[in-house]
Design a protein around this nucleic acid. Structure first.
Lengths: 343, 343
DNA sequence: GCTTAGCACTCGCCTTTTGCGAGTGCTAAC
DNA sequence: GTTAGCACTCGCAAAAGGCGAGTGCTAAGC
């Protein structure tokens, strides 16, 4: 990341153009730069430099008599090389810190609130992928009869993961059987990371409880299915509305495309899922997802015990405030990791 | 409902204007009516009638050289008197029936899927207020230790209500204590409707378990708090995006207002909450909520054991397809009642 | 007396025109 | 290498024009 391919003055101009465009959403002209930024250069000189930058692909013109805006390549260079690291304000730091300081809350809402804070601080739509089960440690399973033919299965793991599901049975089950199964499952599984689950453990268990094959099978299936499907469903969203503050989305059609994306969680999952560590910035068409190709996505992973378990991300127009969002996302991810490790 | 204040021909014209406007979203002119609907009347006659209808407040003109559109009063008359009852198509009936036929699903998703179906069938944003706890019957409470200082409280009731919350304790608790408390709570409460809960029951219980005051108090508080707060949070939404298909919302600002409303669940709660039985249609400014004043809302309650427990609703432009939505909402509410009564 | 043909009139909207201004590239001078 | 000057481009916003759908009114017809 970050080969310096441009000479310092071109870099300066690219940076100024990008910064200004991010702020104003208007193409930036040579004259504006000369007046506003006191670079000691005349508009004509800046024009020449900008023409060069356009030729080498860093800038582009929406039309011939307009100013320049960064191209995708320009944003990439800006993000990799030019962008100045931004400190969060005291206020922002406090918002995040005090949020994580308070540990008592309902489980689901940890995630929902995290994206809410993220959206509030960045003023962009924010996303979160809840923690994977794989590195989580199994804590508890409970089988609770609801009626003669219905059973509530409750699975608890660490990282605030609580899963419940009602299953229907074809035959009635006695409380005693349920207790025995619960007891055995808990005894065997408690403290085990889900990653180890797969088959061997269950085969072993099954041998111990031939009699209850039916319910046992169902319970095991459920646990395995939970393991598999959990990820795709665990996407949290907030602040979609923020996108409407940006002129890029003043036409309803543009917005609608994005909104459709937001409603399809498996597409979002593909967007977010990555095992890559650290901050990841995807700009415009670097994005696989078509609907997001005039957007940029900034994500960071959060970890537990040194292992990546989930992702948070912020989606904005390509003309987004990269420096600020990177700072927020980075800090949030770090605090989130600390939070889960502390639980 | 439904005094016939207008003579038959005026009613006919009001109905035709409203139907046509609902379909086309364009002001309806006398000529269009004459040509399209074969009423045996000339445009001039229709013009005269329309002028009368305008004077008495049932129609209005967006501007002087345009056709007529229904006023709020016009819609009200249409809805109360003129609207023809619509049958659902076989396909629609099947969608709903087959949805309710399948009973095995995760609890939360019952509600989420219900609004999804509703949105899909009506093509408007759809809302649902999950069932109140009050008439629900307590089934089970379980206290599960997560760590030395954390406790998962699981409350199960009928109507598919499952609530869980993690609470932090200042002091460690022994498994044996938890089991005893769980046992006592369950023994006393199982089968009781929440409506009876309030104080007497708990006072009685408290006397029986002086020793465990601390955790017991917390558990009871939690149950009571769940009782209180549950309603406001249990709002389900789907198909917000559908509103963008209507020309009324082509300006982003209009849409944004509505979207903000959708994100504030307590405002939605106020919109939906009602104990009134049967179909309720709120048109335009009849609506308390300012952001929804160029919308109409159609709601119906669903019941369990003859008691209203929740609401489903559809929000659309005032120019919405009342007849169809009423048919869908009515049928859905009925099936939903049957579903819960069957559980 | 209700209905309807005819007609003048209104006015939103769409298209075209016009003018402005921001911005450019090029050239020539510094 | 830098910059002043200048002709040129072109999007955009405001103004102008024309169209057409629709109206209200009047007078004639059933």
């Amino acid at each position: 990341m970050g080969r310096r391919e441009l000479d310092p003055r071109k870099e300066l101009i690219l940076k100024v153009v990008t910064d200004d465009y991010i702020e104003s959403a208007e193409p930036v002209g040579s004259r504006t730069i000369a007046r506003k930024y006191n670079l000691g250069l005349s508009p004509a000189t800046i024009r020449n430099e900008m023409a060069d930058l356009e030729e080498s692909g860093y800038l582009k013109q929406p039309h011939v008599s307009a100013g320049r805006i960064p191209s995708q390549q320009g944003y990439r260079y800006y993000v990799d090389v030019l962008m100045s690291q931004q400190e969060l304000s005291e206020e922002e730091l406090n918002t995040i810190r005090s949020y994580f300081a308070d540990r008592s809350r309902e489980c689901e809402s940890i995630f929902q609130q995290t994206v809410k804070i993220l959206a509030q601080l960045t003023r962009y739509p924010s996303l979160m992928l809840g923690p994977t089960l794989k590195p989580a440690v199994f804590k508890h399973v409970q089988l609770i009869p609801l009626s003669a033919h219905e059973l509530l299965v409750l699975i608890v793991a660490d990282l605030g993961i609580i899963e419940n599901k009602v299953i229907s049975l074809d035959y009635p089950v006695a409380q005693a059987d349920l207790d025995r199964i619960s007891y055995l499952l808990n005894k065997k599984l408690r403290g085990q990371p889900f990653a180890k689950f797969k088959s061997s453990l269950f085969r072993e268990l099954r041998d111990e409880m031939k009699a209850d094959n039916g319910i046992f099978q169902e319970a095991v299936d459920l646990i395995l299915k939970t393991l598999e499907t959990r990820n795709k469903e665990r996407i949290y969203l907030d602040g979609i509305i923020n996108i409407l503050d940006h002129p890029e989305f003043k036409e309803v059609e543009k917005f609608k495309l994005l909104m459709e994306l937001m409603e399809e969680h498996d597409r979002l999952y593909r967007l977010l899922a990555t095992r890559q560590r650290g901050i990841r910035i995807t700009i415009g068409e670097e994005n696989q997802e078509e609907a997001a190709q005039d957007c940029s996505l900034i994500t960071a992973n959060y970890e537990v015990g040194g292992q990546v378990v989930g992702t948070i991300g912020v989606l904005g127009p390509t003309r987004m405030d990269y420096a600020h969002v990177v700072a927020v996302v980075e800090f949030m991810a770090q605090k989130l990791s600390e939070f889960f490790s502390g639980v």
